[in-house]
Design a protein around this nucleic acid. Structure first.
Length: 254
DNA sequence: ATGGCCACAGGTTGTGGA
């Protein structure tokens, strides 16, 4: 069983990459972020033809999340019921006895901006809701773009990024608060290469220079962490023509 | 030099992303 997450930065533009990646990597579950599509424009037929069921919650221009699955999808919930939010950033569903949560955490733009306050409030509310969800669903995974690099080793230049958005203390504390619920960063359960990142800026040849951040994560409850045998970042699609700035992260469960 | 690149809506530029 493989579960994965990928911020595609526009599913309209990236649909060919999604279909190619699934052909190369037939994962069982894939969470998508930044689909940027209203639900009436979601490419259901193309995804079904690739062998996946799909649920989605989108809006015009911004945000938008989806869950693809080879197995049946039930009990779908869009948004955190504890947090009134016009932005479509959360989708939860039950697949093969697991609670799968797809999350697109707010960017935050700049420390101390209005968007930063929104990010922190959103994360605090997420934590409250996840406590409920974990109690109801011992086998839980929350996959997505967290827009937070957990530690300096997840940042290409920690001095340049110190205190900046994605790396600030309050953001990292909000992520740690999720760990304190019992959610484990599956990537760090295993030995990994140094300078492993999941996002690179489009500018300044950042990918070629490996100037990136690791901000896309798969967090697992204890019951799922006990089943996890691997977690890897797939850099391949970042080399394709007209790529997303993020790449997929894949966790393997037995 | 505080921008560089990309996607989007919509219009000859601004906003958001990270």
């Amino acid at each position: 069983m493989k579960i994965a997450t990928w911020n595609v930065n526009s599913l309209k533009v990236r649909l060919p990459h999604l279909l190619q990646w699934l052909a190369d990597n037939p994962v069982d579950v894939l969470c998508l972020q930044e689909t940027k599509l209203t639900d009436d424009k979601f490419p259901v037929a193309d995804i079904n033809a690739a062998g996946y069921q799909v649920v989605f919650s989108g809006q015009k221009t911004y945000n938008g999340v989806a869950i693809l699955s080879k197995l049946p999808i039930t009990d779908v919930v869009a948004n955190n019921p504890r947090y009134e939010d016009a932005q479509q950033r959360i989708l939860a569903a039950t697949i093969d006895g697991m609670r799968i949560i797809c999350a697109y955490v707010p960017n935050g733009q700049a420390v101390d901006s209005d968007k930063y306050a929104y990010k922190l409030a959103w994360l605090a509310s997420l934590r409250e809701w996840l406590a409920d969800e974990m109690a109801a669903h011992p086998q839980l995974a929350i996959l997505g773009d967290y827009n937070i690099a957990p530690a300096d080793r997840d940042v290409h230049d920690p001095a340049e990024w110190e205190g900046q958005i994605h790396c600030s203390e309050r953001e990292r504390a909000a992520l740690l608060a999720l760990n304190e619920l019992g959610l484990v960063d599956s990537f760090r359960m295993f030995e990994q290469a140094d300078k492993s990142y999941s996002w690179w800026d489009y500018r300044q040849l950042a990918f070629r220079r490996n100037r990136g951040l690791r901000i896309d994560h798969i967090l697992l409850s204890g019951a799922l962490a006990a089943r996890c045998t691997a977690c890897a970042i797939d850099r391949a699609p970042r080399k394709w023509e007209q790529p997303s700035d993020h790449v997929p992260v894949v966790a393997t469960l037995n």
